[in-house]
């Protein structure tokens, strides 16, 4: 049973020779984000193993997989938030450290203490800390920029609220505004739609689509399979190892999902997806 899933669902040849895939890892070009041979391990159990991934410019990419498949791990390791055991990361064809200023990261909302003594405006200004430096003052232009970013996510009226008074969706928008303030070219979001209301989801997706239209790359860990086709152009399917990656139209298929989720993806869910995709 399991065997049949494997043989049917793993399009790229994965036959491992000396820990590397058979397929020669092509150079990443100047893709906004590319990882080669990335392995991250908690203890002695790999959370992700020997991943090759390339995320294209001017598009929205989703990282998709079941719980514990290493989605967030991939994102965090790619930007050095957690250490990697092996592998390389290229951001716009540069090593990670040289391209820091071009990356904006939106962590999971639940990863911080929202009772921290800080206001909405303070949080957005954190996105400007690198530009301000240690001794600099936040100039009028920078404050205006922060205010503008709040405006873009529909939170302009909340600038002076304490962050603990926000709803989950509002918190998520503030995090997005902070990332916008960085003026980055690559946006990495960890479950931006988890536990937010419908209005927030709409507001966030609108902002992300504008970023895409501006030629920026958006990569998001995503949970909701039913919205993948509406929101994203590119998918990366992961379950510890890479299952498939490519344009949504050709890669987000029932076969690949079955291979990613195994038995955990209910047949009914798959039916819904195929119906959503039209004639399939």
């Amino acid at each position: 049973m399991i065997q049949s899933h494997l043989t049917r669902g793993w399009p790229p040849a994965i036959a491992a020779t000396q820990g590397r895939t058979e397929r020669p890892a092509e150079l990443p070009g100047d893709a906004p984000l590319a990882v080669r041979g990335l392995t991250v391990s908690y203890g002695e159990k790999p959370a992700v193993f020997s991943l090759d991934a390339t995320f294209p410019a001017a598009s929205m990419s989703a990282i998709i997989g079941p719980n514990g498949a290493g989605k967030s791990t991939l994102l965090k390791a790619a930007i050095g938030v957690i250490p990697r055991l092996s592998g390389e990361v290229y951001v716009f064809a540069q090593p990670l450290e040289k391209a820091r200023a071009r990356i904006a990261y939106v962590p999971q909302r639940a990863s911080v203490d929202w009772d921290f003594p800080t206001t909405v405006m303070d949080v957005v200004q954190m996105g400007l800390y690198r530009k301000v430096g240690l001794l600099g003052r936040l100039s009028g232009a920078m404050n205006a920029r922060a205010q503008d970013c709040l405006d873009r996510v529909g939170m302009a009226d909340f600038a002076h609220r304490q962050i603990g008074q926000l709803s989950g969706g509002q918190q998520q928008r503030v995090f997005l505004a902070r990332a916008l303030a960085q003026d980055a070219h690559l946006f990495l979001l960890d479950e931006p739609f988890a536990g937010v209301d419908a209005a927030t989801e709409r507001a966030i997706i609108d902002v992300l689509k504008i970023l895409k239209a501006e030629g920026k790359a958006v990569v998001a860990v995503h949970h909701d399979l039913s919205t993948v086709r509406d929101y994203f152009d590119h998918v990366f399917l992961i379950n510890v190892r890479r299952i498939a990656e490519g344009p949504v139209a050709t890669t987000f298929t029932t076969e690949n999902l079955q291979a990613t989720y195994g038995g955990r993806l209910a047949a009914t869910h798959l039916d819904e997806l195929s119906m959503a995709s039209g004639a399939r």
Binding site: K76, Y105, D113, F116, L134
Partner: peptide, 20 residues
């Protein structure tokens, strides 16, 4: 002098790490 980096690390250390 170090209030900004320290605030960032105390509030959201992952984000601080991502910023370098």
């Amino acid at each position: 002098l170090m209030r900004r980096p320290m605030t960032l690390v105390a509030f959201d250390s992952d984000y601080a790490a991502a910023m370098g």
